[in-house]
């Protein structure tokens, strides 16, 4: 981390959550969360399982709308146009076109590598071959998969290794030029070598895109993120620069979790 840290006020915001509550039926999973997401930075969400970090992440692209009985209160504002993503008037489909997500387990569609990466573009009605080819190559290059995949673009994506599949899923997410890239424990199903390559990739990607990553692995949070948020039972306990959180946490509980005494 470059040392003299810029003042937070001087950093451009990409999004911020304000007064965010979330309910699964009668159960309140998120309690009054306020948190900034800075532009072209990596923000990590950590905390013991069940703390609501994945639930929080999935609010950003309105994944909860897919299931009945879920309720949002409060707002997540996307900058610069300052739209509240959780507003009922805002179409979740439009939100998901603007924000991309990479899941815990690689989830390649039963299609070729090319068609997987082109999926989001086709969903948007982009079907011109030349445009697709250009965007697919660009996305695969950004996901550091181009060299491995360029000769087998029309093979089934299932044939890739686990780490390659996950990088392809990242390429798929990048192809639509998302404003924020959401990662939901992207390396939990991968071996250490594949994990290292994904982490490397995340470090490169933050040049281009804002990243929000949920991880159960504190070393990973420390390695890849600029900011870290520690959550516990639906509440945001502590938020700050990653090295501040890891070196001198303000809350005793955060320290206990980070040092492995708890969680």
């Amino acid at each position: 981390m470059a040392d003299p840290k810029p003042a937070l006020e001087s950093l451009p915001l990409k999004a911020h959550a304000a007064g965010l509550n979330f309910h699964y039926g009668d159960f309140q999973a998120l309690k009054n969360i306020d948190m900034p997401i800075y532009d072209k930075r990596v923000t990590a969400l950590i905390g013991p399982s069940g703390c609501g970090k994945s639930t929080f992440l999935r609010c950003f692209n309105r994944m909860h709308d897919l299931y009945p009985g879920n309720r949002y209160e409060g707002e997540i504002r996307l900058h610069p146009d300052n739209v509240n993503l959780l507003d009922r008037a805002v179409d979740p489909i439009e939100v998901r076109m603007r924000l991309s997500m990479v899941f815990q387990k690689p989830n390649p569609f039963p299609k070729s590598i090319f068609e997987n990466v082109a999926y989001g573009l086709r969903v948007r009605g982009i079907n011109q071959r030349a445009v697709l080819e250009e965007k697919v190559e660009e996305a695969l290059r950004s996901a550091a998969l181009w060299n491995e995949a360029k000769d087998r673009l029309h093979e089934q994506a299932f044939n890739l290794s686990g780490g390659q599949q996950q990088r392809m899923c990242i390429a798929r997410a990048l192809a639509t030029e998302p404003e924020i890239l959401l990662f939901d424990e992207p390396t939990s199903a991968l071996d250490p070598i594949a994990t290292a390559s994904i982490e490397e990739l995340i470090a490169e990607l933050k040049e281009k895109v804002t990243i929000l990553i949920v991880t159960h692995n504190m070393q990973q949070a420390a390695r890849v993120s600029d900011f870290t948020a520690y959550m516990y039972i639906g509440e945001l306990i502590e938020y700050g620069w990653t090295d501040d959180i890891f070196i001198k946490p303000k809350h005793e509980q955060t320290e206990a979790y980070i040092t492995g005494r708890f969680g």
């Binding site: 179409d91 489909i93 439009e94 639509t176």
Partner: peptide, 18 residues
């Protein structure tokens, strides 16, 4: 957002939803 304008996207979504 470089791909399509928000208005275009909204029209597209409305069409898909139909």
């Amino acid at each position: 957002m470089a791909l399509q304008s928000p208005a275009e996207i909204r029209a597209l979504i409305a069409n898909h939803k139909r």
